Amino acid sequence: MKQGKDSRGAASSTARGLLPRQPLVAVSADVIELYRYLWHATPLQYLEAAVAGAGVFPLVVPSLGDRLDFDQLFAAVDGLIVTGSGSGVHPSLYGGDASEANGPYDPARDSTTLPLIRKAIDEGIPLLAICRGLQELNVALGGTLATEIQDRPRMLDHREPPSDNRDERFAIRQNLTIKSDSSLSRMVGARHIKVNSLHRQAIDRLAEGLEVEAVAKDGTIEAVSVRSACTFAVGVQWHPEYWVKSDEPSARIFRGFGDAVRARAAKRPSITPYTE
């Protein structure tokens, strides 16, 4: 028999004929070695931001490449977050040269995230790509990357400050100019913001399917959007997840992503509750 009221006297979801659903969002994973095991993992800060900033249920997807059924995954999730990482996209994927200097690499992650990104765009799944994720987005759509950009003439040093203090490494310190009347400017409500910066690679040739949303003072592309997307599909080179609870532009990015995820989830058929 159906339940009527919960312990607080409110009508239960079963009594309303629906089960509440916190939208699932797929989150990319790195492959790392720890305790003599290989782990598929993602930093806590992304998962915290997904829950606290976007209001979604993060689901870490192992980097198993084509052994995963992406159709089955996207039948269950309503969003995709592609995280940052200390590794770089392997240069063989965009016509570059691999070297110890611009490593380390994570080919298992590449084999998973690139097809995930393309499928998310094709399926109209909301997409938020952060740092390495932005670079993967560009490569997935046919663009190229520049490595060790701090060594190039007239370029800023976008790497994290040397410190044992995580807050200092993720400090908001870099000025950005956001393109007027862009999805990002409407989202954050400003043309100029400050962000953190922890990268040494950047977009070189922009993929044809992307629009530049923001640039740094030296011209480095710091944010993009997918031109043909029917929903939220944004990549940022900085780390809004780190300050999502205290920095308003960071919070607005995650809220915008979460709103798009919920809008997609709302279009799913209602879940029929279990009855005895």
Rank of each mutant, 00 (worst) to 15 (best):
P91D: 07
R118I: 01
P153T: 09
G142W: 13
L116V: 01
R154I: 00
T113H: 02
Q135F: 03
G86Q: 09
D181S: 14
G96M: 04
S99Q: 09
V188P: 12
I125T: 14
S180L: 06
H90R: 08
A129K: 07
E123C: 13
S182P: 08
A129L: 07
Q135V: 04
I193A: 14
P153V: 10
G95Q: 12
G86V: 08
S99N: 10
A171G: 11
L93V: 06
L156E: 15
R132V: 01
T112C: 08
A129E: 07
A171S: 15
V89G: 05
K119L: 13
A98K: 10
G95K: 12
S180A: 15
P107E: 09
R132D: 00
D97A: 14
R191H: 09
L137H: 03
S180V: 04
M187E: 09
P161N: 03
E100L: 15
L114W: 03
S182N: 06
H192N: 14
I130E: 04
E100G: 10
T112Q: 08
D106Q: 04
P115M: 02
L141H: 08
L145F: 03
Y94S: 12
A171V: 15
L137V: 06
P107Y: 02
I172E: 05
N102H: 00
K119T: 13
F170Q: 14
L134W: 03
G88E: 11
R159H: 10
V89E: 04
A190G: 10
K179Y: 06
L116W: 01
T112Y: 05
S92V: 11
A140L: 03
L128K: 12
V89K: 08
E168H: 07
R132Q: 03
L141Q: 07
R152H: 09
S183M: 10
L116S: 00
I121R: 13
M155R: 15
N138K: 03
S87D: 15
S111P: 01
G143S: 03
L184M: 05
P107A: 02
P91K: 07
R109I: 02
